[in-house]
Design a protein around this nucleic acid. Structure first.
Lengths: 153, 153
DNA sequence: TCGTGAACCATTGACGCCCATGAAAACCCA
DNA sequence: TGGGTTTTCATGGGCGTCAATGGTTCACGA
């Protein structure tokens, strides 16, 4: 699947509709279902989202996932139970359920943040704070990154 | 992939477009996506950039968490979340997002600096200062470099 | 009949595509 | 080796298309 990257701020209209960025739709629509799966993030006031392929990895083989450490089974279960299936309308928009709106503290705008195979939806201001903090932590720590060797990616 | 080397200064036009040096485009266009991925550098007022293959290594590293310590995981996330996918136009130019323009202190010109598998984009004057400092540091430290043996490239 | 939600249509503004120009480097041939 | 020619690359601007957005209509269930 094409990588989900970049940040896009879109408006949430009076009906609760938001356009999913075109590049995200393109990356996801090979997944079989024209829409996204969304569930509340554990660590942040944000919405985690992905396409059907990734969701199937969660539901099918939690065992095969390195993604989550010790409590991976529990987490996958919680994700599945809390996930919403949000189809695109003909213009590529979704309707964000009230529960998720509240969890992510969403108001007039929603920021879509690409994370490779998934993406997150934040309130733009919350994300800006979160990002700034993460940046500073990494900088003050003098963070370095060891990459997997070529071909393993 | 061919190595990215050399320094090139190109002009940023009124629309925010810059030509990516031809030699860089040639080295990257075997990556599957005709364009670059760009994200702000931690340590410098500069833009880090790479092709899709390199970005997928990062994305893969996040998904296969084993490769990363906690710190490295954070860092990879920050890179992924801050990355922009910048496609070439038919003339081989990209549009630099306002946020990156600001981070790298870019004005009328952009300097592309090859770094092997990636490259950086600097304001030409900032780079000159940075380069001078790095030179001095290395000299005063008596820097040496241990190379991997042939074949481990 | 009324309320809810989804499909349809219309607007606009940004972005990508196209062509034209200029400059520089590579190339060719005498 | 030097001059002339050709190709390629960087640059600038105009224009068309499409993505994002807002409103209205239509279908269906209560």
């Amino acid at each position: 699947m094409a990588l989900l990257v970049g940040r896009h701020v879109n408006k949430i209209d009076r009906k609760g509709r938001v356009s999913v960025p075109k590049s995200f739709r393109d990356a996801l629509d090979s997944d079989g279902f024209a829409g996204i799966f969304a569930y509340p993030s554990f660590k942040y006031p944000a919405i985690d989202a992905c396409g059907e392929a990734f969701m199937k990895r969660l539901s099918g083989g939690v065992a095969g996932l390195d993604y989550f450490s010790d409590e991976q089974d529990d987490l996958a279960l919680i994700i599945l139970e809390n996930a919403d299936r949000l189809p695109f309308d003909p213009e590529g928009r979704i309707v964000v359920p009230a529960e998720l709106m509240e969890h992510a503290n969403l108001g007039e705008k929603a920021m879509f943040v690409g994370r490779g195979a998934q993406f997150r939806i934040w309130d733009p201001q919350d994300y800006e704070r979160h990002r700034h903090q993460a940046f500073e932590r990494a900088r003050s720590r003098g963070a370095t990154l060891k990459l997997p060797s070529e071909g393993e990616g």
